[in-house]
Amino acid sequence: MSAESTLLYLDGVSVSFDGFKALNSLSLVMMPGEMRAIIGPNGAGKTTMMDVITGKTRPDTGTILFEGGTDLTRLREAAIANLGIGRKFQRPTVFEPHTVWDNLELALKAPRRPLKTLTYAISRDDRSRIEEILDITRLSALRSRQAGSLSHGQKQWLEIGMLLAQDPKLLLVDEPVAGMTDAETEQTAELLCSIAGKHSVIVVEHDMSFVRALGVKVTVLAEGSVLAEGSLDAVSANQQVIDTYLGR
């Protein structure tokens, strides 16, 4: 497959920490608008994969291209984020001293240079966009609450809201439903599905029912490389996958 038409293109990416190979010649391709679930046992390299895409970790070897041409291995985190790659961490990270509104305002797509933010005054469009996101994430009533005082689930939602405000082309989501109730899990699946199409999404998740609910193509990682790829049913039937991951 040529790299031009892809959104994200990883080829032969390897990373090692003190001799331990966290990623071993990993290759992965995402098309625009696609949604992908990544599963795999602990230490399979899921988080490291996100780290190399977002610039937190530099790969030892390999190619990572965004939108066919931009080499992500040379850019710093902020620059990569500004290309349109958003990331949600495993543990919800919101800015606790700030209000819900301020959190969203910070995330909102707007010029990111210091002098621009120093003189920033919120516009009517920005205001309505934040209102809209507050609506989607059901946080309208809590807009002036300090984010630190939100419940765990509310923080998860706020973080997803912040990613929406960021309006990325590609969204990396690390275990979005960890610690959520069943109802919240279902709502989150719905929300992610509604995002897909406009945005591309990579979801890393352990929760199989959640992955099933998403109903998208699944990539199984093991020991730093791709073990299998396909629909959830197909990979579940794969003997290798059963041996290394599901069967245990």
């Binding site: 902020a78 984020a81 210091p114």
Partner: peptide
């Protein structure tokens, strides 16, 4: 203030901290 508490999060939001 945001980067004081969670610098890498701010970075992943596209701010050159």
């Amino acid at each position: 203030v945001a980067l004081r508490d969670a610098e890498s999060r701010v970075r992943f939001m596209g701010y050159d901290t």
